[in-house]
Design a protein around this nucleic acid. Structure first.
Lengths: 222, 222
DNA sequence: AAATATTTTTAGTCTAGTCTAAAAATAAAA
DNA sequence: TTTTATTTTTAGACTAGACTAAAAATATTT
């Protein structure tokens, strides 16, 4: 349906623009894009010209870039495929949630008719990936959800883990060791004013979580 | 385990060399390789130098090329992954046997630890792909099988469809319409001496199959 | 064995995507 | 508002993988 041929490199830039604009709405600057991609600003400028020629972005020299309608659609579809493949890798192949990103990074670029529809169907139309991130539907619509950072809980409140804001394998592994996978329940016992660390109960166990963890862990308050 | 980084382009050449050598054992000539790859002889020569530098092939100017131990291992592993993904696409995602080649052609290049082991496990260690081609095991060992071309049957003999020697979508679709999927039974009623066409019974139906079909359809005689 | 045909390699060019260094534009400070 | 700092773009070069045209090597005929 999308009629524009895109290379993997172009697709990765589109995703990066989407990701930056998601956190910081508005125009995306060349340097921010280069940093996100881990390349030089010169390379980013080069690519922005290509993407602009293909009408995938609105780009004004020195002023920054935004995704076009088509560019947005492609980026959304990539994220959809990335997250569907992650569900496949975890639910069906049995990988841990910290092992799947690199695979999905490759799998999201697989081209062809009906692949994501069939995959989505096979997986039972999952709405969230193994890290709790929402999976846009086939029309590119996003599921909205109310979740809070652990840091915003007050002592006595309880929550269910719904997602993370840091996808690094080390953080994900640490959480898994603590028993804090998606769906796990925790209760905030107290917060230390000095360093904003959170003492929590996880099932039978107690643990002290740093401010950094409190910042990067999402829960639904129950 | 393989420690040699290979690009998708290099991998496709290794597969092509393997494929040619499989049909016509011995040294593979540059022109044959170029034809198989759909490129020019100059491009093939270029790539042979690269593959030779990486010790993936034994290449002698003007004399042709053979796969090294490592090259053979990589090609075998690609075929393994290709065929495992085809099983996934047909058995799990519900694609038809004529729709999966292009997807698998991309999926076979996905890199990462343990992916094919996990996929193989998930699929129940299949020994043949949806076209009846054998899937080498994790050690690169091939399953050998006794099968005959339909053309070699004599009237009265019965067989089970075990594979095809032509993977084109049009042939595969035609077979599917005839009810000749993998595992289907047929009986040879008669063979016309004039054009070597085969009149067969498939369940309740009868069909006349051309010499070309008889040449490209494998059966196990029962 | 010489002439001709075929195959293969070399030489030179192209594109996508990367880089560094230098130039130009914009933003911030004096 | 002029100077300084920062950001962005341009210029030029590199690599992988492709191409065409020409040259060289091998194979086939006569």
């Amino acid at each position: 349906m999308n009629s524009v041929f895109t290379t993997s490199a172009e697709e990765n830039y589109l995703k990066a623009i989407f990701k930056i604009a998601e956190k910081e709405p508005g125009v995306v600057l060349t340097n921010a894009l280069a940093a996100e991609m881990g390349t030089s600003a010169a390379s980013a400028t080069d690519m922005l010209k290509r993407l602009s020629d293909k009408q995938l972005v609105a780009y004004e020299k020195y002023r920054g870039v935004t995704l076009s309608e088509t560019g947005n659609r492609i980026a959304t579809d990539l994220i959809r495929k990335h997250r569907l493949w992650e569900v496949f890798l975890v639910d069906k192949l049995g990988f841990a949630w910290d092992e799947v990103h690199e695979f999905a990074e490759q799998l999201e670029h697989i081209q062809g008719e009906h692949l994501s529809e069939r995959l989505d169907e096979f997986l039972g139309h999952p709405r969230f990936d193994p890290h709790g991130d929402p999976i846009p539907d086939a029309q590119g619509k996003w599921m909205r959800r109310t979740q809070s950072r652990l840091l915003t809980l007050t002592p006595g409140q309880r929550g269910v883990v719904t997602g993370v804001d840091d996808h690094s394998p080390s953080f994900l592994q640490y959480l898994a060791e603590l028993g804090l996978s998606l769906g796990a329940e925790l209760a905030l016992i107290e917060r230390t004013p000095y360093d904003q660390s959170s003492k929590v109960r996880i099932g039978e166990r107690e643990a002290v979580l740093s401010e950094k963890v409190g910042q990067n862990l999402f829960v639904r308050i129950i």
